[in-house]
């Protein structure tokens, strides 16, 4: 049998949705493992719970819509949404909140807008914001990282806390929980304390919160995997991280005692997770290269502005959703010119 020899350009087979989603999941593993190491089994339980609920909700909606269930569920997009939501949730969040968030994300944010490829907003962030706005107390009850945790819970105790709301005898929520570094920094600054004073507390590591600052690196590693596999392009993450860093450094140099060093903002909260995994969602982000730079820059700006002057300690989710809204407009104004097309000034 004679094979036809084709000259260049040779193209690899195109990535299917399933393969892309699988790589996103693989890229999330380092970050998820780091979160589990620092914050205990809760992260894993929420990931499994959210994935199961997401697949169930997706199957149910597909049935209601009269669409084939198996191909759509097996593309893993619902699982990725679930994992991205779960990784952002506090480790001991009651189980029904996780289910509520992911069901809202899949049913309302994804399928009511037409399903995969049609959602104008990032579903995971819609679920997260729904929970954050509706249940602020539960959503800000974080655990301290492992090196500061006096009473680390084992698997069974974590299960009891998540599913039954009960803690081991002798412990209560106040003793167990701790503010996130962003929250802590914000509260202390609001009490007019100076950064040099705030940072004397054992909570702080080299540039971010103890423990927290190292989770970001593992998201960064996952992001590099995605970049290497060409699942995402560098434009959005670089623009977003660059603008957060620029804003943070600018204000840091203007007033060092009330604005933490730039790396604090990069390695705290959801910045790195957001830059590589959430802002880069191909459906809800801007699609032109120039548009992606604008989109990423604005996410970074809004994140910093809300963190610094807004009402919430972290703002990646809000920033991403706001820019999701602007993405079609950005795309409209950044259409690349077709080769040979003349601009208005050429005539």
């Amino acid at each position: 049998m004679q094979f036809v020899t084709i000259t260049s350009p040779h193209t690899d087979r195109p990535n299917s949705v399933t393969v892309t989603m699988l790589w996103v999941i693989i890229a999330l593993v380092p970050g998820a493992a780091a979160m589990t190491w620092y914050f205990g089994w809760g992260i894993v339980i929420h990931m499994l719970l959210a994935s199961a609920a997401a697949v169930a909700a997706e199957a149910l909606v597909l049935r209601l819509r009269g669409r084939p269930v198996v191909p759509a569920v097996s593309d893993l997009s619902a699982v990725v949404t679930a994992l991205l939501l779960a990784i952002a949730l506090p480790p001991l969040l009651p189980w029904w909140l996780t289910v509520l968030g992911i069901v809202f994300a899949i049913v309302v944010a994804k399928h009511l807008y037409g399903g995969i490829g049609y959602n104008p907003f990032n579903p995971a962030m819609i679920g997260y914001v729904l929970l954050l706005v509706s249940y602020p107390v539960e959503m800000t009850t974080w655990l301290p990282p492992i090196m500061l945790n006096q009473h680390p819970l084992d698997l069974m105790q974590t299960m009891n806390a998540i599913f039954g709301g009960t803690l081991p005898p002798g412990l209560d929520w106040d003793a167990l929980s701790m503010a996130t570094p962003l929250d802590e920094m914000r509260n202390q600054l609001n009490q007019n304390k100076m950064i040099s004073e705030i940072r004397r507390s054992p909570l702080w590591g080299d540039f971010g919160g103890l423990g927290w600052e190292w989770v970001g690196n593992w998201y960064l590693l996952g992001g590099l995997i995605l970049l290497y596999k060409r699942i995402i392009s560098w434009h959005i993450p670089v623009a977003m991280l660059g603008s957060v860093l620029f804003m943070a450094m600018l204000f840091h140099f203007l007033d060092q005692e009330s604005h933490p060093f730039g790396l604090f903002h990069i390695f705290s909260g959801g910045t790195l997770l957001g830059a590589f995994f959430i802002a880069t969602d191909p459906v809800s982000a801007a699609t032109t290269r120039k548009g992606q730079l604008i989109y990423g820059t604005c996410i970074g700006l809004i994140t910093y502005v809300i963190r610094r002057w807004g009402g919430y300690p972290d703002a990646v989710a809000f920033a991403v959703l706001l820019m999701n809204m602007a993405a079609p407009t950005i795309d409209y104004y950044t259409q690349p010119r077709v080769f040979g097309e003349r601009s208005a000034g050429d005539d």
Binding site: L100, V108, L130, V133, S134, Y135, P136
Partner: peptide, 15 residues
């Protein structure tokens, strides 16, 4: 019963 604050807030009206 823990109320879902979002429903009381303006977005809840739109949804």
């Amino acid at each position: 019963f823990k109320g879902m604050l979002l429903a009381i807030l303006p977005p809840g009206a739109f949804i």
